[in-house]
């Protein structure tokens, strides 16, 4: 048979021990599935969304309330996006906690980190596209944060916002980044990321001689499990979308004096909490960047893992990396919970 990408991603057989759900958590595969859901629902949303300040929130209302299944499609897009953030972070933790980030998988680990950053940007730009009172202050605060960056800030703000204040130029830029720029980057990096898995030796496992269990599962069985996961998560998404509507609010009023509730999207609540603690540049820009850099530095700080410890949860030699990652994610969780309880 002629080699194809699907067969590249699905080798004839893979180690049974490392293809179990309790080892992979299914996070990488789910991430790909959710991305596909987002691409399809997002493309459908583009048929009704109008990226102009006057029309944006109104067209979201039309989509949500008037278009048949429009509300459902918007809710699917919303919940798939929220789930993707969770799934990506879970995937990151799985990779660190199983020591799968060390060379030769170091480069792919970095690609994955880049994907996480892109997904957060996609979530934020998508959130901003609502262009309603619910996102207004998060949008103002989020973009003003750029201004606090020394020397670069002003021009970076101009680059993102497209003017001296938020307006039509900002909306069309966010729209273009969301539906084209960032999406294209995620698609390219995502395909590369999946491609590299097998190039780097497939899913991380100890060398055959050191395995306690040498059983393998077939390509057929792998696909069967993937289909099962897709069907169940699709069903869960549909139920979630039918029951819990995505947030929506009244269009941004030109002369609105009601401050309303200024709350960041949940995945940036931790930054909002940090911003309450001190200097906006350090809290809002530097610390998140330091956290990301720390993650990126892990495969350089902990470069090797004894082969007999590979392919298992919490290898002894990786304790340092595990502690750092757990610490950062714990801090993230605590800050998020603190802020959401306010």
């Amino acid at each position: 048979m002629r080699p194809n990408f699907f067969h590249h991603l699905h080798p004839p057989s893979i180690p049974a021990e490392q293809s179990r759900f309790r080892y992979t958590l299914g996070a990488g595969g789910l991430g790909i599935f959710l991305s596909l859901v987002l691409l399809v629902t997002g493309a459908l949303e583009m048929f009704f969304y109008i990226p102009s300040p006057e029309q944006a929130a109104l067209s979201v209302q039309t989509l949500t309330y008037l278009v048949p299944y429009g509300g459902l499609i918007r809710n699917l897009h919303y919940w798939a996006a929220q789930a993707l953030v969770v799934v990506t972070v879970v995937h990151l933790l799985r990779v660190i906690f199983t020591g799968s980030f060390v060379p030769p998988r170091r480069f792919n680990y970095l690609l994955g980190l880049g994907l996480l950053a892109l997904i957060l940007f996609l979530d934020f730009t998508g959130y901003a596209l609502r262009w309603d009172e619910g996102v207004r202050w998060a949008l103002v605060a989020g973009t003003n944060l750029l201004k606090t960056i020394p020397s670069l800030g002003k021009s970076l703000y101009g680059l993102v916002v497209g003017g001296s204040t938020l307006g039509a130029a900002t909306l069309i830029r966010f729209y273009s980044w969301h539906v084209f720029g960032l999406t294209l980057a995620v698609v390219i990096l995502g395909i590369w990321h999946a491609f590299r898995v097998r190039r780097d030796g497939g899913i991380a496992a100890p060398p055959p001689k050191q395995r306690t269990n040498n059983a393998r599962i077939s390509r057929f069985e792998l696909v069967r499990r993937e289909v099962l996961a897709m069907l169940l998560s699709a069903a869960a998404l549909f139920v979630l979308a039918a029951l819990l509507p995505a947030p929506i609010a009244a269009p941004i009023q030109a002369a609105s004096d009601s401050l309303g509730e200024a709350r960041a999207p949940w995945f940036f609540l931790w930054i909002q909490q940090l911003l309450r603690l001190g200097n906006p540049f350090w809290m809002g820009v530097a610390i998140p960047l330091i956290a990301l850099t720390t993650f990126a530095a892990l495969p350089y700080l902990f470069e090797t893992l004894p082969t007999d410890q590979q392919g298992h949860w919490f290898p002894r030699a990786g304790r340092g990396a595990q502690a750092i990652a757990a610490g950062i994610v714990l801090a993230w969780l605590v800050l998020t919970i603190l802020e959401s309880l306010r």
Partner: peptide
């Protein structure tokens, strides 16, 4: 797999039912 496909169909029917319950604009 059959079971999961059944659940998906149920979920789809459920969302169609939820949609049908919305008032006619």
């Amino acid at each position: 797999i059959s079971f999961a496909a059944g659940i998906l169909v149920l979920a789809l029917v459920f969302s169609a039912w939820a949609e049908a319950r919305r008032p006619q604009p």
